[in-house]
């Protein structure tokens, strides 16, 4: 008899765990998507929670997965670090640009090269220029570091430099952090990463003589940049708390936080 009671208690406990997960969903806003938007959404969510008490969850899955999550109704707001494709818009999704992110071209600090133009970057990445000495560097083979197919950063980089499907990568890594670590450890590597995530371990190149910064990205003079997009469903209204969050982050009040996160606010 004792055993039965203990088993019953156990069952009750297990059921309790599940119901606890299912309940109290009302006061949270679920966001899902681009790994590059971690910093900005994290900061905005924290501020929003402080002001209103509503929790904002963020699932770093990647732009494609975030868009898919909105489509399937698994989250309130999708996050994408690229513009929506026509197919996705046709599926009833809507985009709102939150901010602009500069994509920094990074090399190892030991590399003497400081400036490249977009065409040269494209030539390097398509394998037309193979040695650093051709562009004023050391006599060493250029090691191309990129992101995996489908990554928002890769998509952004390749569409800006017009090198889609033509890049001859030496390594395709699955996160911004990996790209930075690899470039920092190989003197002949070149890579690209979201400006917001770049650390001092790598050197950021100027493009056409323009250093990527908030100002140059906003006024468009730094050309390697892409939008951070909020994805919502066109004909389905957001939940009350999600709408509050949406209004909050697209308002001017949020700009300070967006700037602090290293990207340039759009509104």
């Amino acid at each position: 008899m004792k055993k039965i009671i203990s088993i019953l208690t156990l069952v009750l406990l297990i059921v309790g765990v599940f119901t606890a997960c299912g309940g109290n969903n009302k006061e949270t806003v679920a966001t899902d998507g681009s790994t590059s938007m971690n910093k900005v959404i994290g900061a905005l969510g924290e501020m929003f929670q402080e002001d209103t008490g509503i929790t904002v969850t963020y699932n770093a899955t990647g732009s494609g997965a975030g868009i898919q999550a909105v489509q399937e109704g698994r989250c309130d707001i999708g996050l994408a670090s690229r513009n929506l494709k026509d197919v996705e818009k046709a599926n009833g999704l809507e985009e709102t640009i939150l901010a602009y992110d500069g994509i920094a071209i990074i090399v190892n600090p030991a590399n003497p090269v400081n400036d490249l133009d977009v065409e040269t970057i494209a030539k390097i990445y398509t394998g037309e220029i193979k040695n650093w000495k051709e562009i004023g560097g050391n006599d060493a083979e250029i090691v191309l570091i990129g992101r995996e197919a489908g990554s928002g950063t890769r998509d952004g980089f390749e569409s800006i430099t017009d090198t889609e499907d033509k890049c001859a990568y030496r390594q395709e890594l699955t996160s911004t952090g990996d790209v930075i670590t690899t470039v920092a450890s190989n003197p002949n590597a070149i890579g690209y990463a979201s400006l917001a995530s770049v650390k001092d371990t790598v050197k950021v190149l100027t493009v056409d003589g323009v250093k990527p910064s908030e100002e140059t990205i906003k006024n468009g003079s730094y050309v390697v940049q892409r939008p951070f997009v909020l994805v919502t469903k066109k004909d389905v209204a957001l939940s009350e708390s999600a709408q509050k969050f949406f209004d909050y982050i697209t308002s001017e009040a949020a700009n300070e936080i967006i700037v602090a996160a290293g990207v340039v606010p759009a509104n």
Binding site: T61, G62, S63, G64, A65, I67, Q68, E72, E148, A149, G150, S151, Y169, R170, Q171, E172, T174
Partner: peptide, 19 residues
């Protein structure tokens, strides 16, 4: 050479492929 395994082929592209 830089190479891709069966496992990594699935893991690296799954997150970004559309359903």
């Amino acid at each position: 050479q830089s190479v891709r395994f069966l496992t990594t082929a699935v893991a690296s592209e799954m997150a970004y492929s559309s359903p």
